[in-house]
Design a protein around this nucleic acid. Sequence first.
DNA 1: TATGAAACCTACCTAGT
DNA 2: ACTAGGTAGGTTTCATA
Lengths: 170, 170
Amino acid sequence: MDSQQRPLAGPHRSAFGAIVLDDVDRRLLSELERDGRISNKELAALAGIAPSTCHARVRALRESGVLRGFHAQVDPEAVGRGLQAMIAVRLQPSARARLAEVAHRLAQRPEVRDVYLLAGVDDVLVHVAVRDSPELRAFVLEHLSTRPEVAHTQTSLVFEHVHAPGTASL
Amino acid sequence: MDSQQRPLAGPHRSAFGAIVLDDVDRRLLSELERDGRISNKELAALAGIAPSTCHARVRALRESGVLRGFHAQVDPEAVGRGLQAMIAVRLQPSARARLAEVAHRLAQRPEVRDVYLLAGVDDVLVHVAVRDSPELRAFVLEHLSTRPEVAHTQTSLVFEHVHAPGTASL
DNA sequence: TATGAAACCTACCTAGT
DNA sequence: ACTAGGTAGGTTTCATA
């Protein structure tokens, strides 16, 4: 009787090492992206599995690194960071080797929300949220334009930032 | 005995309508940004308040709109979106009035993770996550470069995206 | 490996200070 | 407005199929 089908399996790892997810996993991820605080019981019902099974699946997704974490989304204005900007940064060619280092140092700053390392005319894109324009100016001066490894910066104000909570289901 | 001090108050609204948070609120937000699934009991302990007080505070923060939501963070590679790109979009001057409309339509697409509306040489910055470069090419063609309202696009591959889970505490 | 039940723990509400 | 207590419900573990 080894020909019996296996209806559910949870996250696997392929021969090459890539994670393989089934439809149930994708459904769980999709719902957790939509609502990170959904109860295990409700999540199980949405996925059509038992709560205990759901719990084990979510744990496996966490431990395999597919689920990286859960975070609250806070209104920037309420915490005194109502002004957002995107800063394109070009490094000196000689400093390109330290690109990752520079980027991760920037990411440590409280003003910084995102750092994108790019392949293009600009090397880095820095998304910041600050209180006002003097604070923005101070940040650019202190951490970017006066740095020896930075060749050029271009700052654009962000009128609106629409974050689309991922779509693992599609 | 009306001279007794009021040690804690929770989120207020100032005369102008802006939300005013105290140190405890900021601590709660900071911890919830770090770990959106922390238990109410543990959160209360970190903030130095009683669990029931903590529960009421968090509820008030949700209802006032300061806490916008909770979302899981998923590894893009695991869900078949290992290729990220940033696309700078410039609209036709005549189409600038429809900027918000265009941006929100883009944000509906499953490939789109972020849409930034800018004040600068480019009007919009679109952060996308796709499976491979044919899918990237198809997205740019179908939703951007062949559109009449789009004057120019410039696509840069994203080597790495560091998202800094906000810092409401500072 | 998925399930179902049992023990533990947490969230939530009510009342009191 | 914070604290304390009680109840209902959820999470987690474990034995079973």
